[in-house]
């Protein structure tokens, strides 16, 4: 009996949450566009969300690429196939690691910050105060952050993949002595713009929507107390990571399966 009640309650809560989040996003994004007011806000959020995540993305990408180069080499050299190091590094980065790791780092770096910021704005009544000043906080606070996340994450994923491939090149070619020409030419022969780069791009757009959306919704509905905000921040990171990994499987199955 209790079991069914639990199932029912959880289902209802999930539906309510998804519904609320959809309404929030709809109200934030639909309406008369006001580019003159929006642009400075968007620029500022691009700075906070994108620029400030750039360093961690570049460094992580470099290291992951180097590890891929090292691990890939030790495996491939046993088959005498170290020529295939280039495509191995490039394909794993472009198809999987670029979009996925970027999304996970983004959730930890920018997503949690978004949740905490909006949660604190709620706690200090800044959101209510906007409402009372007849300014819609959804359009003023939520919308620019959403667009900034949506624009930044695919760009960050490209940076991640590019620098990761360069990291693989440093380890594979400069250090372990794979042939320079073979590394790039075999890579070029097997990486396809539309199939690999664009599908990775689509993945990271999907992840961007999901992570930013979760972060904004969790912040917007956070309980305005210190434990409430800290719980919301944690939930942002946990839910967006799970959502990213789950969706990644679905998207991979659809694209490459």
């Amino acid at each position: 009996m209790k079991f069914f009640i639990d199932i029912g309650r959880n289902t209802l809560n999930t539906v309510r949450g998804v519904g609320g989040a959809s309404i929030m996003l709809f109200q934030a994004l639909v309406g008369k566009p006001q580019p003159r007011k929006m642009f400075p806000l968007l620029l500022r959020q691009l700075y906070v969300v994108g620029v400030q995540s750039m360093l961690i993305i570049l460094i992580s990408g470099l290291f992951i690429g180097m590890v891929l180069g090292l691990q890939g080499y030790t495996i491939l050299v046993d088959f005498g196939a170290e020529q295939a190091l280039g495509p191995m590094v490039a394909l794993s980065l472009l198809r999987e690691l670029g979009p996925v790791v970027t999304a996970l780092l983004f959730a930890g770096r920018a997503g949690s910050a978004l949740t905490a910021e909006i949660g604190l704005m709620r706690a200090t009544e800044q959101l209510s105060s906007l409402e009372m000043m007849a300014v819609d906080p959804l359009r003023r606070v939520v919308a620019p952050r959403f667009w900034a996340g949506l624009i930044s994450m695919p760009l960050l994923a490209f940076m991640f993949s590019a620098i990761g491939i360069y990291g693989g090149f440093i380890v594979g070619v400069q250090w372990l002595g794979v042939d320079d020409g073979a590394f790039w030419s075999v890579m070029q022969a097997s990486v396809e713009w539309r199939h690999d780069v664009m599908n990775g791009f689509i993945k990271s757009v999907v992840f961007a929507i999901v992570v930013t959306w979760i972060a904004l919704y969790k912040g917007y509905t956070a309980e305005p107390t210190s434990p409430g905000i800290s719980a919301a921040t944690t939930q942002t990171v946990v839910y967006s990571s799970l959502a990213v990994l789950g969706l990644d499987f679905v998207l991979t199955a659809l694209m490459f399966g």
Partner: peptide, 13 residues
Amino acid sequence: ALVFLAMQVANQS
């Protein structure tokens, strides 16, 4: 990064 991926990494098939 995008130009690098386009020119150096991917073939345009």
